[in-house]
Nucleic acid binder design. Sequence first.
DNA 1: CGTCACTATATTGTGTACAATCTATTTGTG
DNA 2: CACAAATAGATTGTACACAATATAGTGACG
Lengths: 150, 150
Amino acid sequence: MAASYPQLALSTQLCLPLYAAARGITRRYAELLSEVGLTYPQYVTMLALWDAGAPLTVGEIGARLHLDSGTLTPVLKRLESAGHVERHRDDADERRVLVEVTPAGERLRDQVADVPERAWRGTGLGMKDARELRRLLDELLAGLDASSTS
Amino acid sequence: MAASYPQLALSTQLCLPLYAAARGITRRYAELLSEVGLTYPQYVTMLALWDAGAPLTVGEIGARLHLDSGTLTPVLKRLESAGHVERHRDDADERRVLVEVTPAGERLRDQVADVPERAWRGTGLGMKDARELRRLLDELLAGLDASSTS
DNA sequence: CGTCACTATATTGTGTACAATCTATTTGTG
DNA sequence: CACAAATAGATTGTACACAATATAGTGACG
């Protein structure tokens, strides 16, 4: 008879709900964002830029979103051809590329201002649970960063 | 002066930590799974099949993992060509495809038995926090399912 | 017994993710 | 200053995700 492997049982896994919940909420955002022609990764990239209020390098965006240039470069190129951002080499350091929000990209902000509320509405997650979830995820992220760096 | 859009501030977003944490833990699993030649989606597919202890249809796997055939079909084909599963049309209903774990796929179970523990080690997430995180994610998943169905 | 709505899976096309590698700069260090 | 090591992005190749569509099989109803 085969061993039971309780540590592999689907019902005890934490990674699967995390994986499924992330895709689930991302899918919901994506439906709302398609109205303005943005994908979810494009949206969070814009969030990072809007939030900074100043041009960011590719690396700085990557640090905020935990994404590398292999993912960001094509995302930024699509945002640029859509007219939401502009990219130019930094004169002070020609290795770096500065990404700047255009006026059109700034106007996009109005159009997505209600997306978070619409996306989370109906998930049944209360304010208190949302805060607790956020705390646990931040703790997990900090742990992941710490142990991958060392 | 531009409006401040507090609901779009990175620091208040819940979707971004969720997105980043899911990719972070998936990446860690992927590093460990590469030792046996599995990707993370291939691993969770095997988990579902091992867990069921009997052949599952593509749809049944999809229901457990919240994935559709567009994602699962290529994953299952790779698992099949690696010799971990076999796929055949269900005689009773030719629309369905039954996926069965091979003896080689069964042996794989031993080799990944310690992956969850190794993946979570060092994240600093205690047993209590892990349980709480699991509860919140399940609640979120239930909410997402409920509001997408209606 | 057709046939039409429904179901299960596969295919196609677009857009990520990410490891590995490449190229152009920059920054010590002697 | 020469030049090796380090850094910032871009490129390449593989593998998801998922919407939209296509295809094939099933079942209920007239």
